[in-house]
Amino acid sequence: MIKFIHVTKEYPKGAALVDVSFHILKGEFCFVTGHSGAGKSTALRLIYMAERPTSGDVRVSGFVSARGGRDIPRLRRRLGIVFQDFRLLQERTAEENVAFALEVTGARRSTVGPRVMRVLTQVGLAGKARQYPRELSGGEQQRVAIARALVNDPIVLLADEPTGNLDERATRGIFQLLRDINASGTAVILATHDLDLVRSVPAHLIELQHGAVVYDSAEDGGPAAGEGEP
């Protein structure tokens, strides 16, 4: 479903990814791990095509990075993206933030309300739909961001350090939510440097170091995370 084929991404300051190749399957739970600056965020940005590879190819469910351009909005409607800093619109309520992601796709007005409530219920925030982000805790704000990512029924949810700003309890809650989402069939790619999280469940694990893949559990006979050291 997501394929990196000899991908290199260079910036004026230096290379962020060097000759990276991996394959993430439909419905997988995949950790992308590595220390700060290892290239995790760059890899995710290449998946939602905020960046183009300097060389090589990124393929996401039929979309090819070399084509890009006009297809990108269509691709992003099939992806859900979650960030460490939530990226919610502060002047809109939780339900308006979620509805916004539907409205930009041109969804029929009559379907927006029910779909928004469905995902807010799924993330456990149905009772706080009318609250503004500033009235919610960090964990709750991240749940709104996840609801927004889910509302278009994405094929994959990309989460870039989604628990980086959260306390331990909120982290566990968000991680469990991501696992539930994965259990319902949506692939989840979680970029994190939190090794406790990585070790807590068996999953596809890709470890990056200085922009290169140093370990890929899929190349090593299947899911490895949670089964010991990668």
Binding site: P73, R87, L89, V104
Partner: peptide
């Protein structure tokens, strides 16, 4: 600009 960035991330076209 933050709103524009978010609109793009959720798949809004430039025209929208």
């Amino acid at each position: 600009r933050e709103e524009i960035t978010i609109m793009r991330l959720v798949g809004a076209t430039d025209g929208f």
